[in-house]
Design a protein around this nucleic acid. Structure first.
Lengths: 207, 207
DNA sequence: ATGCGATTTAAACGACCGTTTGAATTGCTA
DNA sequence: TAGCAATTCAAACGGTCGTTTAAATCGCAT
């Protein structure tokens, strides 16, 4: 194990604690204990608890959204107005979230649970952060879907894409807790989730 | 306003506080203040905080699930093996949740936010309570869907119904917070949500 | 090696938490 | 109306919370 900076250890520990025990039980003291650092180090490096949580989310959201955008743009190489396969578009949106989940070493798996928790919190600062990040990417993907399915009204696309995000978020947060998960190895269940989710999303947009 | 018992006032206040501020900020003191009662009255009537929260959920979950079951059974009147319209089946599952939301007087609207929060919490007791309630109803609805769509593999039905529940839950928790919500009156947005959600669910099951 | 800014530390602050206690009050029955 | 059980109440319990303070320590350029 490489030696991590105090700041990184705090971010990682916070992420894990939220994923494992939720926001309600999260405390500065538990974080500092898990990160093998001092209580005050957290306020020193992050100001306060709220800013720490925001940075935990931002750190990975930035990466997740960059990957999604890159995969989308790679689909219509150069030509922005080229209509592409609906399944590919949804793959570009869904798969990065699941790749991230599989990235055990970087804690992406943990993060997706954090993200699911964050959605359900009604903390204004969290909601703002998520809305600010999601708005542009939703617009881009909705536009791509419109090109792929020109017969679908734009409003319908927005509604259904919104619902797909809900299903994805819910599935990620529930990952491993489902009764289906216990009937097969975790890796297999994971891959199956990706496949089923994409097929589900495609079907929901091709009525 | 009719005079409510202390127990009812505590349940109602707890429900509202969870919906408005989440589980993290919920405290016995805030509940007793909102319910115009004493701190100790809560422990007197409910034992402890955890049991109070469980009762808040059970009170409405029981009603919600009864209505769903009744609507499903009313579809195939008497004849259990009669295949019925997929849209009607999904309506029986989705609409009661939304009727409940619209039932302002009984606080159903508030409750759906509570439910959305509860999903994201990883409290074992909450998860157990929800799993115990959901398992039988999911089986019944999956069976009805199977009769309506015999060409769909049973496993696929379970996966997609699971995703639909996710979309529904997410939509309910997000109700009113969406950017779309601000562009039309609340009642209209609500009815539109029902319609779009059912159409979305139907589409996702008829690939 | 010395000085200085960056970092870490122990300790304490006031505030709020869930729960318990035992006395006061209420509502109903005998 | 007397008495008893159900309910409400003020007060206190031990604990945990987020944050702050000031001293100790570290890393590194001079």
């Amino acid at each position: 194990m490489t030696t991590l900076s105090t700041k990184e250890r705090i971010l990682n520990s916070t992420e894990r604690l939220i994923a494992e025990h939720g926001f309600a039980e999260l405390s500065i003291r538990k974080i500092s204990l898990k990160a093998h650092t001092n209580l005050a180090a957290i306020n020193y490096h992050f100001g306060n608890k709220e800013q720490l949580i925001n940075q935990v989310l931002e750190r990975r959201l930035n990466n997740l959204f960059e990957v999604r955008m890159k995969m989308l743009h790679d689909l219509n190489q150069g030509d922005e107005k080229l209509a592409c396969n609906l399944e590919q578009i949804l793959h570009a949106f869904i798969a990065p979230a699941l790749y991230m989940i599989n990235d055990e070493h970087q804690g992406g798996k943990v993060f997706m649970k954090v993200l699911a928790r964050a959605y359900a919190e009604q903390s204004d600062s969290l909601h703002e952060l998520l809305a600010k990040r999601y708005t542009p990417i939703i617009k881009e993907f909705a536009e791509a879907i419109h090109l792929a399915c020109p017969e679908l009204p734009r409003a319908t696309i927005f509604w259904r894409f919104h619902f797909i995000i809900g299903a994805l978020t819910y599935a990620m947060g529930d990952f491993g807790a489902s009764s289906m998960a216990k009937q097969m190895p975790e890796a297999e269940y994971f891959n199956k989730s990706v496949e089923e989710l994409i097929q589900f999303a495609v079907a929901s947009l091709t009525s």
